[in-house]
Amino acid sequence: MKVNTTPEAGALAPTHYPRRSQLYRQHVIAGARFEEVAGSVVVAEYIDKTDEAQQAAKLALVDLSTLSRVGFKGAGAPDWLEEQGARLPDSPNRARRQGDGSLIVRLSTDEFLFLCDLTSDSTFTARLWDSWSFQSTKGVYPLPRADSHCWFALTGVHAPTALAKICGIDFHTHRFSKSEVAQTSLARVSAIILRDDLATTPCFLILSDVSSAEYLWDALMDAMLEFQGDAVGMVALRTLTTN
């Protein structure tokens, strides 16, 4: 795939930043308008698409890979994180919203994933980083989740059925509760899937091996085909959050 990634004069482009989503060429081809976030860019919207919010309410896929996130694990992690003011989910495979809008996902007894909010305004992750050091914080180990995993959001009422084409877990909303987490196989790659609705719109956050990002994106788009799913940008997500 040969892509002209030279941006139009004045327009924000992924190549302006060293940190680039594995999928940025696809977004450029699809006519994305980008906006800056956390030292990189994210798709704000696709120029040729109309009413992305409505699309997202039905079925849409968003690439959040450049947004910030981090992991902490280790026997000392639960206590240390609570000392830092984290409100941890009570049990593994649950997520919990923090005061600043970020989300803590408990992956096992002593492993946690921190996801920023959709505007990437949350500062909690950064504060954790500041207070952590290898020497002083015993038994707590950071994990580079912002780079090990790509991050997508699959939104809309058809999302559970679309997921059922590539995953053996039942994500229908009456079976898979809000803030529930599944670590499973999605289209034959390992993935963390959690439900984090946008107000009334079902939304599943998907994190998977970053090197498989394009493969998984294509597999999801293929699964979404029969429900007329499409890629959308962040603006649509924010619209649905406030609706």
Binding site: G168, A182, Q183, S185
Partner: peptide
């Protein structure tokens, strides 16, 4: 014990 009931293909 960590993830509950899953298809054995996940293991």
């Amino acid at each position: 014990p960590l993830n509950g009931e899953r298809n054995i293909a996940e293991f």
